[in-house]
């Protein structure tokens, strides 16, 4: 890679999201947002006139959806790398977007850090799926998606909570320790279990020990 900035175009019909996304990307040193589109048509128009390396594509846009837009965009400019950015993680949406030629897929819930990771990965010519989506897709039929790209990541706070759960503390006790509402601890626990595909405290504990988050101690 040279020092040249990567040119990114965004397409999403939700203005608040688009603004936030643009703000995020514009702070990144290697990224230049060259265009922002509210519809698929607008994105095609931008791509026709400006140099675009990567397009971040919403799926659920009115009139022309992200899958159709991707197809047309790549017919027009085959070198553009498309990353799906969608509220949906349903497998069929993901598969259809990938079949239309997209190189990455990130759910909007993970659009911050995950999207930046996706941009860097597809820039290197690889495919990137965020953990949530990867879990869905790797279980399915796509053999050509490497499994190791989808290691779930947990936040520092989630690590803290997981450690305390593994050490046998109740939610109330954990909430006291971390100065949180007990319901927030419950939220963390649910998120951890969902992210790591674990279904019981026993499994959480096992995971924590295996990954050095806690140690077996008396």
């Amino acid at each position: 890679m040279t020092n040249a900035k990567v040119h990114i175009a965004l397409a999403d019909d939700h203005r608040m999201f688009l603004h936030a996304l643009r703000a995020l990307l514009e702070k990144e040193p290697g990224i230049d947002v060259v265009g922002v589109a509210g519809t698929g048509e607008e994105l095609l128009a931008i791509a026709a006139h400006k140099p675009v390396d990567i397009a971040c594509m919403d799926i659920g846009m009115p009139a022309m959806n992200g899958i159709e837009t991707t197809r047309r965009l790549l017919a027009l400019r085959p070198n553009i790398k498309v990353i799906g950015v969608s509220a949906f993680s349903d497998r069929q949406f993901v598969l259809d977007l990938l079949n239309a030629g997209a190189r990455g897929y990130v759910t909007k819930a993970e659009a911050g850090e995950e999207l930046l990771r996706a941009i860097h990965t597809v820039q290197l010519g690889k495919t990137y799926l965020c953990p949530d989506v990867a879990a869905t897709v790797t279980n399915a039929l796509l053999d050509n998606v490497p499994r190791d790209i989808a290691t779930p990541r947990i936040t520092a706070r989630e690590r803290q909570v997981l450690q305390l759960i593994a050490e046998g503390h109740t939610s109330v006790r954990i909430a006291e320790r971390l100065h949180l509402a007990a319901s927030t601890v419950e939220v963390h626990r649910r998120n951890i279990m969902r992210k790591l595909d674990l279904h019981s405290v026993a499994e959480l504990t096992k995971y924590a020990i295996r990954n050095g988050i806690t140690t077996i101690s008396g």
């Binding site: 939700h14 608040m16 999201f17 603004h19 936030a20 996304l21 703000a23 995020l24 702070k27 509220a87 909007k108 819930a109 659009a111 911050g112 850090e113």
Partner: peptide, 18 residues
């Protein structure tokens, strides 16, 4: 809800970076 929550999430990320 979903687009707003997504925007909120990005905004928080932006806030953290700022």
């Amino acid at each position: 809800t979903s687009p707003n929550l997504a925007a909120l999430q990005l905004t928080l990320t932006n806030l953290a970076r700022a």
